[in-house]
Simulated assay, not measured.
Amino acid sequence: MGFEPIIHFMKEMHGKMNLNLGGTFQGSQSMQQVAYLRQLQRDMKKEETLLIPLNELDIVVFDIETTGFYPGQGDTILSIGAVKVSGGSIKEEDVFYSLVRYENPLTSEIQKLTGIDEMQLRDAPLLADVLIDFFKFVRELPLVAHHATHEKNFLQHASWKLFKAPFKHRIIDTSFLYRIADPSMEHVTLEDCCEHNQIQVKDRHHALGDAKLAAKLWCIYIPIIQKLGCETLRDLYERLAKV
């Protein structure tokens, strides 16, 4: 095999390898995505976030819909929704929502639960593109989610699989808040917590709808826990360590 065929062969193999991971790591665009994500992580100032009064903290409340519960076993993100909260007020106009491309059949249970159908997902953007757009929306702000372990697991898995970068955003779980504000409360689902706080439940199991519900919980609980002595995230974490 001469020199020219070898070069052609290597380029062909490189192209085939770049087709994995849902279309990521394809040329300059994916390298720009990775570079953006790593720069964003360098810009995060987590320690400063710990000291900002909670009622002055700018955050992004978000939610994801997925095909299941186990990203390491093939489950994946179907949609991401988010809304910004600034100074204890929900910025209704400052939202993010996107479906994610998925070309496999959806179970009838997932379609019924989320209202998402297969045809919508086939024309949606790739997960890598959605995540970068989501991170551009979030920037360095801390994230908030209701029972955030689910969201954190999927974002950690996707960030490493797609970008070979760890997921470094701080995620605050709304359960931290009601464990302090109302420790006797037995309601744990988002819907139950909302009903307990007289929040009208609508657009349930829609990523943006659930994000807005969780944002309303945040705005209700922050003044309560501040009156109990948790002025900052650091105070919140220290109180939780004693619960």
Rank of each mutant, 00 (worst) to 15 (best):
M1I: 10
G2D: 15
G2K: 13
E4S: 14
E4H: 06
P5R: 11
I7N: 04
I7E: 12
H8W: 12
H8M: 12
F9C: 13
M10S: 10
M13C: 01
H14N: 06
H14A: 10
G15C: 01
M17F: 11
L19N: 12
N20V: 02
L21P: 04
G23V: 05
F25D: 08
S28P: 08
M31S: 12
M31H: 14
Q32P: 02
L40V: 12
L40H: 15
Q41S: 15
M44G: 12
E47N: 07
L50H: 03
I52P: 15
I52D: 01
I52R: 09
P53N: 13
E56A: 07
L57D: 03
D58S: 14
I59N: 02
E65Y: 12
T66P: 11
T67E: 08
P71L: 02
G74P: 15
T76L: 09
S79T: 05
G81M: 04
V83G: 15
V83W: 08
K84N: 07
G87I: 02
D94S: 11
V95N: 13
Y97T: 04
L99M: 06
L99G: 08
R101V: 04
E109M: 06
E109Y: 12
Q111E: 15
K112N: 09
T114H: 01
G115S: 03
D117Y: 01
E118N: 03
M119I: 06
Q120M: 14
D123A: 10
L127A: 09
L127G: 01
D129Q: 11
I132P: 01
F135S: 10
F137G: 11
R139M: 10
E140W: 01
P142D: 04
A148C: 14
T149I: 13
T149M: 09
E151N: 04
K152T: 04
L155P: 03
Q156Y: 02
H157R: 06
H157I: 03
K161S: 13
A165V: 09
P166Q: 05
I172D: 05
D173P: 05
T174S: 01
T174L: 03
S175V: 10
F176K: 01
A181L: 07
A181Y: 05
D182E: 14
E186P: 00
V188M: 08
V188F: 13
T189C: 06
D192K: 13
C193I: 11
E195F: 12
E195N: 09
N197C: 07
Q198Y: 08
I199W: 02
V201R: 06
V201C: 01
K202C: 12
L208R: 13
L208E: 04
G209D: 01
K212P: 00
A215C: 04
A215G: 14
K216S: 11
L217F: 06
W218M: 06
C219V: 15
C219D: 05
I220R: 13
Y221Q: 07
I224A: 07
I225D: 03
K227F: 02
L228E: 11
E231Q: 15
T232D: 05
T232Q: 00
L233A: 07
D235T: 08
L236R: 09
L236M: 13
L240I: 14
V243Q: 06
V243I: 13
